[in-house]
């Protein structure tokens, strides 16, 4: 089976937050919850890079390991999902997750932590595919319709990729080889290579394909 992954290309992300908006709209996530966020490193100084982060659907997911009620499961596609009927909103997954993916709506009488909400890779939850119940709890199930997550589909620069890990690897490998080749030619470490070859589109990943 496929192993679904996200990949965000920091060289391409232009911090447009299109993925964030697409996700919020597609999944109608609760107020105060952002399943995806764009983080900018070195904002405004040389070497600025942006990355779009959400649940990375880890193969060995820390959230699933620490969950006291065992509400996580991994689908055949390698997507890490959780059952909101089981989740008690303890927040342990949030402590364990390296990416800060789990989010908690201000819910319940205490208005502190409701049931956890996170990126589902647009794959819904344990309910029947594309049922109203599933949409209410987890948002859209695009994977069941044969579509990829909307955030990646909407990405204007194709920085955010979603899909089978092998396919993503291949795309990213091509980009890397291409870029590193260009940089090596001039002998500049890639991190410092802020100046691009002046020859138009030549040497960019898109020119190879």
């Amino acid at each position: 089976m496929a192993r679904m992954k996200f990949y965000c290309d920091a060289e391409r992300c232009i911090e447009c937050n299109g993925c964030v908006t697409a996700c919020k709209n597609e999944n109608e996530v609760p107020w105060g919850v952002n399943r995806r966020r764009v983080v900018t490193i070195k904002d405004g100084v040389p070497g600025e890079r942006s990355l779009s982060v959400a649940c990375m659907h880890c193969s060995d997911a820390p959230c699933a390991a620490v969950c006291p009620v065992d509400c996580f499961y991994t689908t055949d596609d390698g997507v890490v999902l959780h059952d909101k009927d089981i989740c008690i909103g303890c927040g342990y997954c949030f402590y364990a997750c390296p990416f800060g993916a789990p989010q908690f709506p201000a819910d319940g009488a205490f208005a502190t932590r409701g049931k956890m909400d996170k990126c589902t890779f647009c794959a819904g939850g344990p309910e029947a595919d594309n049922s109203a119940e599933e949409f209410r709890k987890y948002g859209s199930n695009r994977l069941a319709e044969g579509k990829l997550p909307l955030c990646a589909e909407m990405c204007s620069t194709k920085a955010l990729l979603a899909g089978d890990a092998d396919v993503l690897s291949e795309i990213y490998r091509k980009r890397i080889v291409n870029r590193a080749g260009r940089v090596l030619q001039r002998g500049v470490p890639y991190q410092n290579a802020t100046l691009r070859s002046p020859s138009g589109l030549k040497g960019k990943a898109s020119s190879l394909e």
């Binding site: 937050n17 964030v20 105060g32 952002n34 966020r37 764009v38 983080v39 900018t40 490193i41 904002d43 990355l51 982060v53 820390p62 402590y95 364990a96 997750c97 390296p98 990416f99 800060g100 989010q103």
Partner: peptide, 18 residues
Amino acid sequence: GSTQVKSVDSGTLINPFG
């Protein structure tokens, strides 16, 4: 990092302590 999403730790890209 900085991010448009305003919540606790949302600017942290990765949290190895977890």
